[in-house]
Every structure is written in C-alpha cells, then in structure tokens.
Computed example of a mutant assay.
Amino acid sequence: MDDTTSQQGSEAEAVARRTRFGALPEPVRVEDMVEERAAGVPDPARTAYNQDEWLVRYCL
C-alpha cells in the first residue's frame, strides 16, 4: 500500500466521520428533561397546624 492509497483512504474515512458526527445534536431544554407529578393526594389536616397560633394561645 503506497502513500497515495493510504491518504485517499484516510480522506474518505474523514469525510464519512464528518458526515456522521459533524454536527452536535440540538440542545434539550431543562423544562423538557424534568417531569413533575404529585406523589400523593394533598392532606389538608397535615398543614392545619400553625406555630404562630400555638404561641398566641400559650405564651400571651
């Protein structure tokens, strides 16, 4: 194999490589990568406790 054949082969490989990997993929937005779903049904009794109300009742 001489230099001319080897150089043509590497040029052909370079063209094929550029064709396949020449451009980066489009960037993906963060909003498209995250999916938010509620873990369960909200329980109103869980958030009914108010620390300020306790302070007013027992400290004043």
Results as ranks from 00 to 15, higher is better:
Leu55Pro: 00
Val30Tyr: 03
Val41Pro: 02
Ala12Ile: 09
Glu11Arg: 14
Leu60Gln: 06
Asp32Gly: 05
Arg46Asp: 14
Thr19Gln: 09
Ala45Val: 02
Glu31Arg: 04
Glu53Trp: 11
Val28Lys: 15
Arg37Ser: 14
Glu13Phe: 12
Gln8Phe: 07
Gly22Asp: 06
Asp52Arg: 09
Ala12Thr: 10
Ala14Gln: 07
Leu60Glu: 04
Ser6Asp: 07
Glu11Ile: 10
Val34Trp: 00
Arg18Ala: 12
Val56Arg: 15
Ala48Lys: 04
Ala39Ile: 12
Val34Leu: 02
Arg37Trp: 02
Arg18Met: 02
Glu36His: 01
Leu60Cys: 07
Met1Gln: 07
Val34Gln: 00
Gly40Lys: 04
Gly9Ile: 13
Val56Ser: 14
Ala16Met: 12
Gln7Pro: 01
Ser10Val: 11
Val41Leu: 02
Glu36Ile: 01
Glu26Ala: 10
Glu31Gly: 10
Ala23Trp: 12
Asp43Cys: 03
Pro27Thr: 09
Gly40Gln: 09
Met1Asp: 06
Val28Asn: 01
Glu11Pro: 01
Ala48Ser: 08
Asp43Ala: 03
Tyr49Arg: 08
Arg29Pro: 01
Asp52Pro: 01
Asp3Met: 08
Arg29Asp: 14
Pro44Glu: 05
Ala38Thr: 13
Gly40Ile: 01
Pro42Ser: 08
Ala38Cys: 08
Tyr58Phe: 05
Asp43Ser: 14
Gln7Leu: 04
Val28Trp: 02
Gly22Cys: 13
